[in-house]
């Protein structure tokens, strides 16, 4: 390997940040959730990403557990992994607020007006790099669309196409 030529690949570090690569290599909550009360599948036909998201919601509308399984690119898997970390302990409404916040920021960063939803989204900012890669935004938002569909009780398959 040629040490001198490593540098240009570092330009990709804005997209493939260490946090993203870590979650892609070692996705959290990456399993079926038997206790799930809601589930939905997300499909991105462009690259073949296919994730199933599970959430368990208690009687107080609080998400007590979240998990996912399936296969996809590093961006979609890392995004799903970060999602499951984040939404555990949130109310259904807060989870939907997160969905609006994340998809708004990634798909329409210029128009979307961020608002305080009382959830720390700092880690999710690791996904911001996809905004420079229009074909990859759908990878980053796939699990979030599945979350929205699951929490709303629409257990259908959602597609980013």
């Amino acid at each position: 390997m040629n040490a001198v030529s490593i540098r240009p690949a570092d330009e990709m570090r804005d997209l493939y940040r260490e946090l993203i690569l870590d979650h892609a290599r070692n996705p959290r909550h990456f399993h079926k959730l038997d206790a799930a009360t809601h589930t939905a599948e997300g499909i991105n036909p462009l690259c073949g990403d296919k994730l199933r998201l599970y959430v368990a919601v208690d009687d107080n509308d609080v998400i007590t557990a979240a998990a996912f399984e399936g296969s996809g690119c590093a961006i979609s898997v890392a995004s799903a992994s970060l999602l499951t970390d984040l939404v555990t302990g949130l109310s259904k409404q807060q989870a939907l607020d997160c969905f609006a916040e994340v998809t708004g920021r990634l798909t329409a960063p210029d128009e979307y007006e961020s608002r305080d939803i009382g959830v720390n989204l700092d880690k999710i900012r690791a996904l911001d790099g996809v905004r420079d890669y229009p074909s990859r935004v759908k990878c980053a938002t796939l699990a979030w669309h599945a979350l929205s569909s699951a929490v709303r009780g629409q257990s259908d398959t959602v597609s980013t196409e």
Partner: peptide, 28 residues
């Protein structure tokens, strides 16, 4: 490395390839 990630990284180095199922899902 997922093909889609590879495609993005290659594009960043000026290399245009196709990634995905190539409209031939039974082959995949």
């Amino acid at each position: 490395i997922h093909p889609h990630d590879l495609g993005t990284i290659l594009d960043h180095q000026g290399v245009a390839i196709r990634t995905g199922h190539h409209c031939a899902m039974p082959v995949m």
